[in-house]
């Protein structure tokens, strides 16, 4: 994702580790329960992932992770306070304890996972860099883009991925760099460049900004891996597990056919042992996580399963109309796979 190389973040981490040391296991859950809400770091505005509606309610796929954790811990998805963070301050905010979870379209990379004192709890969206072109060009694959003028957003790994891809395929291109997504969308429209490259989730948002969105198409090629997921501080395994399993519960619920409408009925009368274990009708699996027995019921009832959250925020039920693709369940050709509750 947008990643200004995090040298600064690493330096500051070194400072953090020196000053405050690692968080203690269990400390976060205790603190969260004591203050009565989850403090969640989200983006300062990313279509479909975290944004505010007219009434000032935060919505989006990343926001749903925060709500799921609150539903699991408190049985109330509204017990979340949001801290909108810029890309630069997000890691500091998590490290310094300003937020309990960072759910801000953050790409899982080795350096962030290992060197920043953070832990990625999973992947709630598999993203990747793609291309948006005008249908008039008649291009159906990125391999046909030899000699194209490409619009890029500045200061992100997007530029590096792009040059790697074109070099690997022996293609030539002319880059034009823009500062914001609005500028780059406008310049595609004005014909200053043939192709717009960015993360695919953003290309769909960019396409809506154009006067005639139907004239443009997102090419099938994905040239980078961008697994986006919620992040927590390293050292508090208990909290890590809660965030990770809140996400897994949503994915498992979708796989088992449990959704926000039928979850209560299923919890009472299911014959499927997998569903019974997930929803707390059988066994004491919530207790292992230090959560109430009905933790997964609350998540699914108040936030929905993963599929519902996806469709509502970025999929067919939203303006963005992103296809499931990599984010389909593992048994439907995608990558979303959650270990079983057992």
């Amino acid at each position: 994702m947008k990643m200004v190389k995090s040298t600064l973040a690493m330096l500051t981490t070194a400072a953090v580790l020196g000053v405050s040391g690692f968080a203690q296991a269990g400390a976060t859950l205790d603190a969260v329960q004591k203050k009565g809400f989850v403090q969640c770091g989200i983006s300062d505005g990313l279509p479909g992932f975290s944004y505010a509606d007219e009434k000032g309610n935060y919505l989006g796929l990343d926001v749903d992770v925060c709500r799921a954790v609150a539903a699991a811990v408190f049985g109330d998805a509204t017990k979340v306070k949001y801290s909108p963070l810029t890309a630069k301050e997000r890691f500091t905010a998590l490290q310094s304890g300003e937020v309990d979870i960072l759910s801000r379209n953050t790409t899982w990379t080795s350096s962030r996972d290992a060197a920043l004192g953070l832990n990625f709890t999973g992947t709630n969206y598999y993203d990747g860099q793609g291309f948006l072109v005008n249908k008039k060009l008649g291009v159906s694959s990125a391999k046909e883009l030899d000699g194209a003028t490409v619009c890029i957003q500045a200061g992100t790994t997007t530029e590096l991925n792009l040059s790697d891809y074109f070099r690997a395929n022996g293609l030539k291109y002319t880059p034009i760099t823009y500062d914001t997504s609005d500028e780059s969308a406008k310049s595609v429209e004005a014909g200053r460049c043939d192709v717009l490259t960015s993360d695919q989730s953003q290309l769909y948002a960019q396409r809506i900004k154009l006067a005639n969105p139907d004239e443009y198409v997102v090419l099938p090629e994905v040239i980078s891996k961008e697994p986006l997921g919620p992040v927590v501080r390293q050292g508090d395994e208990e909290w890590f597990d809660i965030v990770r399993w809140s996400l897994f519960a949503m994915v498992n619920a979708e796989e088992l056919g449990v959704d926000s409408k039928n979850v209560e009925e299923q919890a009472k009368s299911t014959k499927n042992p997998d569903v019974a274990r997930l929803l707390g009708a059988e066994g004491e699996f919530g207790k292992d996580l230090k959560l109430p027995k009905d933790w997964a019921v609350q998540i699914v009832k108040q936030v929905g399963n993963y599929g519902e959250s996806f469709e509502r925020n970025v999929g067919a039920g939203s303006e963005l109309k992103i296809e499931r693709g990599l984010n389909a369940l593992w048994n439907k050709g995608g990558l979303q796979y959650a270990p079983p509750v057992r």
Partner: peptide
Amino acid sequence: KQATTDPAWLGMAT
């Protein structure tokens, strides 16, 4: 800027 990222109002930046 934040309001323009609402999918319901994308493209209203100007």
